[in-house]
Simulated scan of single mutants.
Amino acid sequence: MESTVKKRATTARVNKPKKRSSYERNIEWHGWLFASPWIIGLILFFAFPLFASIYFSFTTYSILQPGDFVGLQNYKDLMHDGLFWKSIYNTVYFAVLFVPLSILFGVSLAMMLNVKVKGMAIYRTIFFLPTLVPQVALAVLWMWLLNPGFGLVNGFLSSIGIEGPSWLGSEVWSKPSLIFMSLWGIGQAVVIYLAGLADISQDYYDAANVDGANWFQKTLNITLPLLSPVIFYNLVMGVIGAFQQFTLPYTLTQGKGSPANSLTFYVMYLYDNGFKYFKMGYASAMAWILFVIIMVLTGIIFLTSKRWVHYQGE
């Protein structure tokens, strides 16, 4: 009995929480102090606007007036807004074509730039340079190149007997033109693909050579499966970026979305409602619809990734 009491007393002394020293408390205090600018900035510029926009989406709030609570009326009005659906169509059209093409061209360019030849660093730099060009400057450059009258693209086509289209002035060719411009700046994705290719061990290719595999078989069975985590990352970021397309079409059309609103993208219409028409409640509702769309698509990509994303060592 006495030994049991002693054991319990010993256990209580062992499990008794150790009091922190003043030095440890000072270290913790200084840590919070150094992190406080970031925490305050997160609350003021991210958390507060986030929760405020949820409330504003149920009101007629504008920058000039506080507005009234209208419940789901903003969301109901959006369902009957023709330009809202047009902007969704334009954005989905862009995302469905641009994201797969960016992955296809990005992986292809990375594989070509991964070949060990003399001067490869120069070629890599050349393909990366377009990403350093600001979006506004890129828009001005391509407006000149695709000008139907004196643009270099139509000039080249006419020299080989082809009459070039109106490009940005045509409702049919405006979105393909924008996709082509966006593909011109995939250098960042190419760099990420190059890093993924460098991470693939040469042993896999040596074993495939012993088995007599050709280039296509090695690409299909080694390169693409082991590069799939990088493709997965660029796919997620590409979808998010495609649904937030704004600067390039806004600059090309001076915010008008012409011709015939074929370049009116979702975020452009959201921006117009919020800062041009001061319908901030309406714009907040659009923002949360966009958030839900992106979250659903990202969730679908994550759920399906288990079938096609392969990690080394698994």
Rank of each mutant, 00 (worst) to 15 (best):
R307T: 10
I293V: 15
Y123V: 10
G67W: 08
S158V: 04
Y23V: 13
G67N: 06
G82V: 09
F84A: 06
T223I: 05
T59C: 11
G212Q: 06
L178R: 08
Y271F: 14
F216D: 00
I192W: 01
V140D: 09
Y266P: 01
V99H: 03
V136R: 07
K18Y: 00
F98Y: 14
M79G: 11
G257E: 02
T304C: 01
V115K: 14
Q135P: 07
F150W: 07
L50I: 05
A9L: 15
Y55M: 08
V230A: 13
L33Q: 04
T11R: 13
F180G: 08
N214W: 09
A287Y: 05
M120F: 06
D211E: 15
V210P: 05
D211G: 05
L183R: 13
P66T: 10
W32A: 02
E28H: 00
K7P: 00
G155D: 08
W167T: 14
I122T: 15
A110C: 06
P225G: 08
Y269A: 00
E2Y: 08
Q188A: 13
S87K: 04
D77T: 12
I293N: 01
P249T: 13
M295V: 10
T304I: 02
W288A: 01
N234V: 15
A110K: 04
Y89M: 01
L146G: 05
R307P: 00
G274C: 12
G313K: 06
